[in-house]
Amino acid sequence: MGKEKIKICDEFYDIMPPEYRELVDSATYGKEGRGWKDVGVAKELIEEHSLCAGCPESIAFRYVLACLPNPEDTVMVGSTGCTSLVFPHVAVHNIHSLFGNQNAVASGLKRALAHRFPGKIKDVVVLAGDGATVDIGLDMTLQSWFRQEKFVTICFDNELYANTGGQESGLMQKGFVSKMAPAGKKFDKVKLPEIAQESGCHYVATLTVSKPNRVEKAIRQAVLIAREVGPTYIQLYTPCILEIGKQAMEGLQEMRDSEGPNERFAFKEYISEEAKAYLASLEKEKKPAAISSTQA
């Protein structure tokens, strides 16, 4: 949804809703260096949302949208869950898939876009919860990685089925007790980042959304590598404060506590050799451009 596509005809500008005029006038589409610092300023970065007050997913959603390098030519594929409540508020093309088949939908979409728009960048980003990614949709998640489909998979990991009452998911911590899992989790958290690496992902990152700079770098690298090299995976801790018994203002601290040394969400990053070479080539291309802009 580039600015050239949402431009208002001069004759109709005065009768358009003020919210739409503001969106057109101040959207970050096409802006060099757009990023997380635009959150709270740019209207299209989820000015309002329908999630719970203080929900870390709302923070994560804003950062993801702000850090997409090419939002006007990006299509996001979501799945049933709390994230599906936000997509209607998102000013980026998106598809709502059935529970768990988001990576299958994204596979067909990415191929169709490459055929329909040859030579044009069209990024596809999957965004789903842990239930859709590692439980119900694990087969389709893995198969897209095995086939080396060139899109990003982002998992909002809240370590349970938050949208339906707190059932146990494969990414729940061992021993954790929730409303719909009163006996507690009997086995360790599934090591999906390690599985992603072994399944052919060229970039894998595990982190929380407490540090926006880190999230921005991870999202950008994942999208850029997926364009040219192959599948990428990011696992973001977005705790459900209601289901873990936290107050609305405690989500940020919960994430910080979970990313300390030796904690389950301590920052980890894997980059394949092919992806490293590609990122190095991009950096090499940037230097002449930066020098010429400085001289100008």
Rank of each mutant, 00 (worst) to 15 (best):
Y237P: 02
E47W: 14
K186P: 07
A66S: 14
A289S: 05
A248G: 04
F267Q: 12
A280Y: 07
L127F: 06
A114K: 14
Y63T: 02
K7E: 10
M249S: 13
E57T: 08
V41G: 02
D25F: 01
T232H: 00
T238C: 13
E47I: 10
V209M: 00
K276E: 15
L242F: 13
S58N: 10
P193Q: 09
K150M: 08
E44Y: 11
G165V: 08
L252F: 13
S293V: 11
V105Q: 05
V204Q: 03
P231N: 00
D25T: 00
P56I: 06
E285S: 13
K268L: 03
V229G: 03
I241P: 05
E263H: 15
N103T: 11
A162Q: 11
V229L: 05
L127W: 03
I154G: 00
S169T: 15
V209L: 03
Y278E: 07
G100Q: 05
L160G: 02
E250H: 11
D188K: 04
T141E: 04
A248C: 11
Q148R: 08
F117W: 04
L207W: 03
I241W: 07
I154C: 00
I244H: 08
L160S: 07
E216D: 08
K276S: 13
Y13Q: 05
T153N: 11
K7W: 00
G166T: 04
A106P: 13
Y270I: 07
Y63G: 01
N101K: 15
H202I: 02
M76G: 07
D257A: 14
A104G: 15
K217Y: 11
C55M: 04
S107I: 08
S79H: 00
Q148D: 07
T206H: 00
E149T: 06
K217G: 09
V125Y: 01
V64M: 08
R227D: 02
S210R: 02
L224M: 04
K43I: 13
N213F: 00
K122R: 15
M140W: 13
I6A: 00
D139R: 15
P193H: 07
E285T: 04
E259I: 01
G81W: 05
T28C: 08
R214A: 09
Q143W: 03
A106Y: 09
